[in-house]
Design a protein around this nucleic acid. Structure first.
Lengths: 362, 362
DNA sequence: ATGAAAGCGCTAACAA
DNA sequence: TTGTTAGCGCTTTCAT
């Protein structure tokens, strides 16, 4: 025997399907009616079909969160925040992965028109006109957690990368580090662009010139290692190494400050690296260890995202908190608000960063 | 104007709705018919409604993967594997989080009857009769990635924890470590039970008695730190510290280690710890560092799951690979097979572990 | 307060 | 090959 339907329940209860539906939806009915229906429901183990219901009422009570890579811990933070808000509002949250290609993102947004969910929060890694077009044409509300032009006319919530970079640079400066290098992710991504720009500005504002800049192939640990290797091999980074254990714990071992023939080399060796996210930073730290450089003594490292990984890494990673939790929360709120009223003018919210100082900086 | 439907397309193309449906589903039609329909579809930007379609055909072409905690990197591995298999089979994968309570899991399984997806892979943290009952009664196929009794009559795929523990213990033994402690997760969970049992057996088989056993409140980093602290404070673990370079900078001054009945302490101080998963292991390593113990010199650490975190941690973590990727892959295959044929007898697959040796063991 | 019936958008008989 | 039509399971008028 197949799954019971309203009709089955109605038959079992000896009432009409309309009455069953009413009782199920808490609309007015007599005590007795409620009792009969509930008994029948119980007895048959009836569970209403969400597809049929949503076909009729035009809503699924599901919301989708689309992220590029479930392995990136920043999305974990965001997911948790989104989940909390949407479930409090009575929605189910489903998470899907897009992968790194913009084509996948476009396909996902287009697919939303099929009625899988009542709304979408998307955190796109790459953005192009196709994607913006698909978002604008999407029948269900979309909130972008990331940077898209205002002309797109869509609700967005984004981080303030330049400000975050400023926080990182100034923190390092305050700790006496001036030979700052930058380990970026792919520059053709939204965060990659924003962070490159932010880094350049922050350095300039402080009268500094970057010691080195490398671009990882992805925002992943593996890519971070590889790019870290490149960063270290291209420069005389090894010259930072303090003379091993002869150095007292308090001494930050700024070897090479004194002049000498190695001046040129020394000049180009970073005493600090800012990484565009925590995964890259951790990958870099592995490479630093591999060539015998100690963090933070020889090289200070600052990550971005302040994800769970920053806390878990060793040494714990100083990281720019770009407000992933708040972005997630507010993205969800924006989405709920737009579902509620589709005519409101699109909002563009910027979340301000803070710096979580840990032991990877002196 | 609202979203176009088959009727709209049919009108625009001057054909019947049935013809539209046929063309869309690739059923035989004349060149001209295909052309007309496709033109109309293009023009109107028509996208078929998945809800209506699935209401009619009885399938959603979506599969659900339910995990307890998106922050646990072992699920990342599993997710990736499941995703790969199901998307190759033409299904969308949606991921949902259950949280740690069995009630949430039961609610999720019951909810599947509402038709959200054509199948479910669930990796339950806690299992009780209610959950098993709900799985057995579930109208859509369910595959359990975890340990449920054979009597449940459900497809399962699980790890071989005892074997994994044996691998860990024997590896440590081979490296000359005999004072082995165990950092478990909550024992009222499926993995917690399995690993406690496995650890006890593995130790016994090698004629060893555990130096200490502690139970973390959750399978999380924070709980790992806390339980790690407990483990270290309850024992004279600090006595392991090689004298080496004097006092390390991170030394938190383990007062009371010197003097007193050191012999007793030393006997009970572990020279190796096996943690029930990677997050716990990493949490522990932070606590070890905090009391000035070096890994692996003073204490060797073995994690379980061989997740991305094992590779990312510092030092990289030796970890028992319980086959999360393979479990994910085969769980997905099992699910697809059952969707294909609901009458096949339930299979119970056990995946064999391997050991990924890294630098946290000597 | 309850019941009969229309219809959400689609597919699959069945008819032509 | 194409069109007509009956539902999939549900909610919601509109009568009663």
């Amino acid at each position: 025997m197949s799954r019971p339907t309203v009709a089955g329940v109605a038959r079992a209860a000896g009432v009409s399907v309309a009455s069953v539906s009413r009782v199920l939806n808490g609309l007015p009915a007599t005590e007795e009616m409620v009792g009969r229906v509930q008994r029948a429901v119980e007895e048959l183990g009836y569970v209403p079909d969400a597809r049929a219901r949503s076909l009729k009422v035009g809503r699924t009570f599901q919301l989708t969160l689309a992220v590029a890579d479930v392995g990136n811990p920043v999305y974990v933070t965001m997911m948790r925040a989104v989940e909390e808000v949407v479930s409090a509002a009575g929605y189910r949250l489903v998470v899907t992965t897009t992968g790194p290609d913009v084509a996948d993102e476009v396909a996902l947004v287009r697919g939303m028109a099929r009625g899988y969910a009542d709304g979408l929060v998307i955190s796109p890694l790459r953005v192009d006109d196709d994607l913006i077009k698909s978002i604008r044409e999407c029948d269900v509300p979309v909130v972008v957690a990331g940077n898209v032009p205002a002309s797109a006319g869509v609700d967005t919530i984004r981080a303030n990368s330049p400000k975050g970079m400023l926080l990182a640079v100034e923190h390092l400066l305050q700790k006496g580090r001036r030979r700052i290098a930058f380990l970026n992710g792919p520059r053709d991504t939204v965060p990659g662009t924003a962070r490159a720009k932010g880094f350049a500005e922050a350095m300039k504002a402080n009268g500094l010139r970057p010691v080195a800049e490398v671009e990882a192939a992805d925002f992943t640990f593996a890519a971070g290692r590889e790019a870290g290797r490149e960063l270290l091999s291209g420069l005389g980074a090894g010259s930072n190494r303090a003379d091993a254990r002869g150095v007292a714990p308090g001494d930050r071992g700024r070897a090479g400050v004194a002049g000498g023939p190695a001046a040129k080399r020394r000049r180009s060796a970073p005493d600090a690296v800012i990484a565009a996210n925590d995964l890259l930073a951790v990958g870099l730290m592995h490479e630093l260890a591999a060539v015998g450089l100690e963090v933070p003594r020889d090289v200070a490292v600052v990550g971005m995202d302040d994800s769970e990984l920053a806390e878990q890494s060793f040494p714990p990673l100083t990281s720019v908190n770009l407000g992933s939790a708040e972005r997630g929360r507010r993205a969800a709120e924006l989405l709920l608000a737009r579902i509620d009223d589709d005519t409101r003018t699109p909002r563009r919210i910027v979340v301000q960063p803070t710096l979580s100082v840990r032991r990877s900086t002196p």
